[in-house]
């Protein structure tokens, strides 16, 4: 009985660990994109925290008015810049996405209307250059 349980434990453990090896092929997540986006988000949080701190310290009388105004302006601009970068980042992401779907669809030649194969650069009928999104 014990032996049976032991074998069962062993086999199920091996199965569970081994399963992804055969069923999750493909490359690992690329680090770059996800990472730098996170960094931006954290920078934004840092700037927001700074602004909140300033507000709080000013209201509770720890910061003089001139210091408050100067510092607040600086951190607001910093936050605005981060927001802008984040937006740019998101837009860039959207562009990458469009490219992908564009490749998968089989478009028609803009010149003669012939159906083209995905991945072709020129129309095999009339030789016109096929659209490719520039990144």
């Amino acid at each position: 009985m014990t032996l049976f349980i032991e074998i069962l434990i062993f086999i199920s453990a091996m199965f569970f660990i081994g399963y992804p090896l055969f069923h999750k092929k493909g490359t690992a997540f690329t680090a770059g994109s996800d990472g730098s986006f996170n960094e931006l988000i954290h920078k934004k949080e840092a700037a927001y925290t700074a602004i909140k701190d300033l507000d709080f310290d000013y209201i509770t009388g720890k910061l003089s008015e001139s210091d408050y105004k100067e510092l607040k302006k600086r951190y607001e601009i910093e936050a605005l810049n981060i927001l802008r970068l984040l937006d740019e980042y998101k837009n860039k992401g959207a562009v990458t996405l469009t490219k992908k779907t564009g490749d998968e669809r089989t478009p028609f030649c803009p010149q003669c209307g012939t159906k083209t194969k995905g991945g072709d650069n020129f129309c095999f009928q009339c030789g016109a250059r096929l659209n490719s999104v520039e990144i």
Binding site: I17, G18, Y19, P20, L21, F22, H23, K24, K25, G26, T27, A28, F29, T30
Partner: peptide
């Protein structure tokens, strides 16, 4: 860069 290994 093998997803399978990490998942495993």
């Amino acid at each position: 860069k093998r997803k399978g290994l990490i998942a495993s």
